[in-house]
């Protein structure tokens, strides 16, 4: 499997990274180089092998249902590029 320019543009768009035409051109061989290399994994016979889920045996803990957090709007908004009236601001969205 190798990627073409259109695929690179699609990946960039999915990743929300704006790229120019020239950047897309440059990325095609770069990504293909890496993808071609990782594809050697296809050689490995993985029949009956489970994909890794927990690298060190460990159990998912569940916490109690108590309100222990929140009520810190100032901290939440402190670093926001745009915040007004207690909200984050983003360019107007049309749904």
């Amino acid at each position: 499997m190798s990627v073409d320019k259109q695929t690179v543009q699609k990946i960039a768009s999915l990743s929300r990274i704006a790229i120019t035409d020239a950047e897309a051109d440059a990325l095609v061989p770069e990504l293909n180089n890496i993808l071609g290399w990782v594809e050697q994994l296809g050689e490995v016979d993985c029949k009956d092998v489970e994909p890794m889920t927990a690298v060190i045996p460990n159990k998912l803990r569940l916490r109690e249902d108590a309100v222990t957090d929140g009520d810190m709007r100032d901290k939440i908004l402190k670093n926001a590029p745009a915040a007004e009236h207690g909200f984050f601001g983003v360019p107007k969205v049309i749904e």
Binding site: M1, V38, L41, G42, V44, C46, V49, E50, P51, M52, T53, V55
Partner: peptide, 14 residues
């Protein structure tokens, strides 16, 4: 082809 296979190989490595 990529991600699941890689996680399986990870199991083998482990």
């Amino acid at each position: 082809a990529y991600y699941t296979q890689a996680q399986k190989v990870r199991t083998l490595i482990s």
